[in-house]
Amino acid sequence: MTATSAGSGPGAIARPSSAARTRARSRRKATPSWVKSVLMWTSIAAIVLFCLFPIYWIVNTSLKAGADLSRGALWPDNPTLRNYRSVLNDGDFLLALRNSAIVATTTTVLSLFVGSFAAYALARLRFPRKALLLGIVLSISTFPVIAIAAPLFKLWTDIGLYDAEYGLGLIIPNLVFTLPLTIFILTSFFREIPRELEEAALVDGATRVQSFTKVVLPLAAPGLVTAALLVFFAAWNEFLFAITLTSTPEARTVPAAIAFFTGSVKFEAPLGTISAASVIVMVPLVVLVLVFQKRIVAGLTAGAVKG
């Protein structure tokens, strides 16, 4: 740094003016970086605005009622919680919330449980055609959902899973897409874990299962959390299966239920209640992300081997 080199040395104390000169110089130097940070913060603000504005708009709409709804003002003139009240008093919506919670949680747990074993096998064990298998698993997630929705509708009707209570009929279709995602994420995390760590655990007297649960899983925790969040979000927001495979409030999840909202007053567009419902379903997701933010970023494998 220029400041130190100008101020250091035996001459620094002898000449009182040197400190002042240093300050002047560093101020002159700072100007470009100030411009840089302005540019940076402006672009960050633009990105944040771009991402968050739709959410703001939903919140904005959810606080409006009556004629305000159609006026499109940037903020509610007469903010009201009426929409929230009506949504939360709507028995069907509460049922849908319950169903969504059950479907999303079960999907996540099953995805992680099955996915972590599958991913471990793909990352570690030697068997023929491994790359091909991983490719096939991945390609499943590229299927258009609509392509399997219709046959599933028929099959589900036949075996009685159509419109099953608690949205139970939605779990398997969800897994079709969340499982490949989970396997993909976890495989890359497991690959990063040095094989020698597991061998050390085996020599230390661990069984294969113990070396998996006590060494591999803790080290893959960031991957598990990431996968869990993504799966939970996907299952929580899933719409197409929900709308095709359910028909009654007892089975519907939130996205489907919202689609069936009718205005609280006849002929009024249900925009306000839809927005309020959307805000409510967003809350758990935002909370989850905030809670696990650190976990996702953490690089836990540091220091495993000499680096």
């Binding site: 020698e196 061998e199 050390a200 655990a201 020599v203 230390d204 007297g205 495993a304 081997v305 000499k306």
Partner: peptide
């Protein structure tokens, strides 16, 4: 199995468990 052979191994990369303290590594 390795665990039943009553042997201990020191690896070239050391293979220390990164999520455990030195104490837990040694006591594992």
């Amino acid at each position: 199995d390795p665990g039943e052979r009553d042997i201990a191994m020191v690896f070239q990369s050391y293979a220390l468990y990164p999520h455990m303290t030195v104490r837990d590594n040694m006591g594992f």
